[in-house]
Design a protein around this nucleic acid. Sequence first.
DNA 1: ACATTACATGCCTATATCGGAATATGTCAA
DNA 2: TTGACATATTCCGATATAGGCATGTAATGT
Lengths: 113, 113
Amino acid sequence: MARATTTSDAFNAVAEPRRREILSYLAGAERPVGEIVAALGIEQPSVSKHLRVLKDVGLVRMRCQGRQKLYRTNAEAIRPMHEWAGTFEQFWKRTLVGVKERAEAKVRQKARE
Amino acid sequence: MARATTTSDAFNAVAEPRRREILSYLAGAERPVGEIVAALGIEQPSVSKHLRVLKDVGLVRMRCQGRQKLYRTNAEAIRPMHEWAGTFEQFWKRTLVGVKERAEAKVRQKARE
DNA sequence: ACATTACATGCCTATATCGGAATATGTCAA
DNA sequence: TTGACATATTCCGATATAGGCATGTAATGT
């Protein structure tokens, strides 16, 4: 078998660095394809393909305006990923607390010497 | 050109559903490979390969104990992804606020009719 | 030393890209 | 209608998987 399709879910779509750039660029602001091409310095066909993938998984929304197509990031679709990563927050926080505690114990140890 | 390697960064490594399962399973608890195989019902060679990818990008840590190898999720490595997704939080919150406001405006509109 | 246990790795195949170049589609303007 | 402009799609080649199977390797027990 081969790798999962990029259109299977947001996690796969976002694995591509260029697509993350596009998402950031389109966050909070609607923009035509041409501007994305100019701003990010990516070939136009390439941008169109990335936008297609992003649209298929719902990470961007599109609206036609004359001969332009305005894209914008659909932040809502990023939320599940944020939440998934967030389930690990307790563990990295715990680790940091552990590090801090061990450091402090070391200081106390030194003081006793 | 082909797709980016899964070993290039955490985003690519996490794009694989099985690997996300493994990460969740190994969060907060060290476990030998055999237990992962049994718990998740994945072929042993497959688990080993996924663990290799996860280890290469620092998403898991490994420790030898006799003939067993104990793996555990390194939550710290998931943090950057949480933060990246978090940069969009303001936008989905804004959207929700907008939805709420529009809904309320509609209610007021109805009341005036 | 030998068998067993616990993993890791190598090989193979089918497939899903990603980028580049060329081309197709769709919209507006004169 | 013809042409220009804005995007999308197709075809191509190179490559990176993911899974299945067989095998290699390291540590332990007898």
